[in-house]
Every structure is written in structure tokens, then in C-alpha cells.
Design a protein around this nucleic acid. Structure first.
Lengths: 226, 226
DNA sequence: GCAAAAGTGTTCCAGATACACCCATGT
DNA sequence: ACATGGGTGTATCTGGAACACTTTTGC
């Protein structure tokens, strides 16, 4: 069955740039392309939108189908629509991004992907289409958002130590942060609270565990400046 | 001539939320809809993307065709694609926004619009589709961007007084700003420079004229926080 | 007792805010 | 001379940045 329109229409896809932090490195989830064009290159999970689903639902669906990852909080990044970004024809991609907790994402190859893998953002394989450009924008946005939102908490398990949270900031921002200043600020903001639990791990003092006070909310400071 | 595809495709439009400031009020450019649906309601200028034009070029083209406005610096706002936002079928709208200089925009009704008009954002007629939601997001973005970009300079003529520029900030932010602090900061940032020219107007001391040092550039502080 | 990460306060600086008077012009 | 907006400087506050030692555990 085919579909006919009076005017030509572009194809619309949703893609997902999913970050995580593992072994002190910022990583991004990629899918190896099994077919042309860009066969053998890696790309962000994504695919064509269905006519009755919201954009973000399409992004979630493709992410789940291709990688098995579910339950991450997606945020719209940007829409890419340069005419020749896909050699097969006009494709407009609405791109979402997120920062996922390390363990929570159980990657498995889905039905329509030959392989799924986390890559350190500094050691990337060749990317398909304009996905390098998309990734560059996503990295900047992620780092910027860390400063004034609780997006980092999305990447944490339910309970976590302050050192673990600090490590997320350090990896994404690419620099070290003073421990005392970090703790002071995190607690002052009020987005996390201590649990009555400690984590014993290694030959050292146990670390207090914290949890997000409102795990759903991501933004809160609008900040207008001046 | 018709166009046929194996899978259904959404229609894609680009829309433009164009702000200006006139008579101490923030205004937005709207086009009256001549046909159904939402006949007689007002909407942002916009229309279907062509297959060989970039998204931002589509936005510029539609803006020019429907309102006669050209030469404004557009920035992508967000992509709206909820399935039932347009009763005629699935329509995905990539929305751009800008802040235009007051005089520069010579509005005229274009070929496919019954009427074009600037409305104060606080005295709006009924809007078509989800354009009230779009406008709400655009207002927030505009106010936020004022704080860390030179977008306000886009709304200025080539030469302008500091009082005029301050008025833009006050109108968009919806509050008054201290004159001395404002001038101090604007000059410290270095995005404007004084001309050897003064504006005589009214029964008072003439105002020095300034110009943007680099009128093209809009953003400069990335600000990561922490 | 030693190694290893957790935890904790104070000082300093820069940028933002608050605030009031004189200046140049047209009428 | 007076009304009108243009122009200027200082004191204070606040939030960010720098900085070093003690604590608790496992071995």
C-alpha cells in the first residue's frame, strides 16, 4: 500500500543522542548500520516517525526497538534538515538527547540493528550522515545544562554518593571541581537529600548516600540575567 | 502531479515568531488566516517546506512571502509535532523566532495572506492551532537569551542610544533596570561602541549614539556553570 | 599503622545591585 | 527659568573560587 500527496513531503525521523558515564568517561550510544548508505558506519538510534505518535514517543520507541533502552528522560535538542544530509532524499531529523544512569541501560541488539555499543565520545568510529555535527551540539548542550538544571541527577541511580555525582560533573565538563564547593552548592540548591544509608566500598570511610528530592523535574532556574 | 511514498509522511512546515518593540510594548507579527481551519484566527507566518531548501530558508521565504519582512536573523526555537495539532492531518512545525528592529520591518500583506499585523503580546486575538503554546515558549526563550547574548542588538537600527537599548531590555524582561548599571555592563561587555554622533530630540540634552561592534554575531557566552 | 576516599569551613574576589545629582537642550 | 531626558561614581552585597586537614574504614 502506498501513500499519495499533492505536494512532495520530506521524510521525518527522530534520533536520540544518549549519553552515559562509565569508567570515568563520557560515552554515547551508537548503532551500527547494516545497510546502505553508510553501511558499517555508526549512527544514533532513530527512525521514521509514525503518523499517530508524538515526536518524543517516536524517539522513545526507536530507542527501545533498536537498543532495548527504556525509561530515560528525553529532551529535544534541535531539528536538522539540510537538504542533502541523507543521500536517499530529503530527511528531517528531530533529535532528542538524554543522560542515562550507568547500569540502568541494558543494551541489547534490537531487531533492526546489527550491533549496539557505547563509545567514549573521544574514541568514536566513523559516524553516518551529519551525526558528528549533531553530537557536537549535544555535547555543548549537555555541558551547558549541567550548570542550571538537575539533568545530572537523571544519570544517577536512586541512591548515590556525592563523589559519584561530582564525577558526572567532572567528566561532562572535562575538568576537576573542588569537593567542598561542589557539596556546598549541591546541598544549598536543595535538589538532593541525604538518606539514612551509607555505602561501604574499599579501604576507606563509608560514603553517605543521597537521593534526588524530585526525580522527575529537570529544569528549574530560568535565569534571565541582568 | 502527485507524489507517492511507501509509508505515510507528515507534512512539515516552518513558522516564524517575529517580535518587535514599538511604543514601549513587545509585539508579535501575526497573519490572519483566510481559509479553514481556524478561518479568521491569527497565526504566525509560515508554511510548507520545499524539498530543496534548508529549514531556515523555508522560514525566511514564508516570512517574506506572507509579510514582506526580510533580513532578520532567525534562530530555531523548537519543533512542535503533537499528532492532532492541525485538524487537517499530521503537521510538524519547525519554529524559528527573532527580534526585529522597529522600523526595519515594512509589513505588507503578501499574496497568500488576508492581513498582516503587529499585536502587543498582552492583547492578542484568538490564535490558530497551538500557536499560543508556541508563543509562550518563544517569550521565555527571548527573555532568557537577552541575558547572555546580543540578540537585543538585532532589534536596534544601525545607530541607537543607550536609552533605546535599555528600553528593549525593560520591555522584554517586564521590569525596570537601573540606568547606570545597565550602561556600565553594556560597555564592559564590549558589544557596542560609541559613534561620533549625537541624537537631538526633544527639550533635553542630546543622546550619544552607539553601534554594535559585530552586528552579525549573536551568541557569545556559552556559560557552563559551576 | 598505613593507604585511600569521605567529610568539613573560612577567606577572598569579582560581578551585580542600590542609590542621587548635575548636564545640555528646547521652549 | 524650567521641564525633560542624558549622563555619571561609589558603597555594599552576594555568590563563586581557592584552599588543607581530620575521619573512618580495610588490609
Amino acid at each position: 500500500m502506498t501513500h499519495t500527496y499533492d505536494y512532495p513531503r520530506p521524510a521525518v525521523t527522530t534520533d536520540v543522542v544518549l549519553f552515559t558515564i562509565d569508567a570515568e568517561r563520557l560515552r554515547v550510544l551508537l548503532v551500527r548500520r547494516g545497510g546502505d548508505p553508510f553501511r558499517g558506519c555508526w549512527a544514533f538510534p532513530g527512525g521514521f516517525i509514525e503518523l499517530d505518535e508524538d515526536l518524543i514517543d517516536g524517539a522513545r520507541r526507536e530507542l527501545a526497538e533498536e537498543t532495548g533502552v527504556t525509561g530515560v528522560y528525553l529532551e529535544q535538542l534541535y531539528t536538522f534538515g539540510t537538504p542533502n544530509r541523507d543521500p536517499r532524499g530529503r530527511v528531517i531529523s528531530v533529535v532528542y538527547y538524554a543522560l542515562a544512569p550507568e547500569g540502568r541501560v541494558s543494551v541489547r541488539a534490537g531487531s533492526d540493528a546489527a550491533a549496539v555499543q557505547w563509545f567514549p565520545v573521544n574514541e568514536l568510529p566513523p559516524l553516518a550522515f551529519d551525526h558528528d555535527e549533531i553530537l557536537a551540539m549535544a555535547k555543548v548542550r549537555l555541558a551547558t545544562k549541567l550548570g542550571y538544571s538537575t539533568i545530572a541527577l537523571q544519570s544517577m541511580p536512586e541512591k548515590f554518593t556525592l563523589s559519584e555525582l561530582q564525577s558526572v560533573y567532572e567528566v561532562v565538563l572535562g575538568r576537576t571541581i573542588d569537593k567542598r564547593n561542589f557539596r556546598k552548592r549541591m546541598l544549598a540548591v536543595g535538589s538532593i537529600e541525604p538518606c539514612q544509608a551509607w555505602l561501604r566500598r574499599g579501604n576507606h570511610r563509608p560514603a553517605r548516600l543521597y537521593r534526588a528530592t524530585s526525580p522527575e523535574v529537570v529544569d528549574w532556574t530560568a535565569r534571565a540575567g541582568l
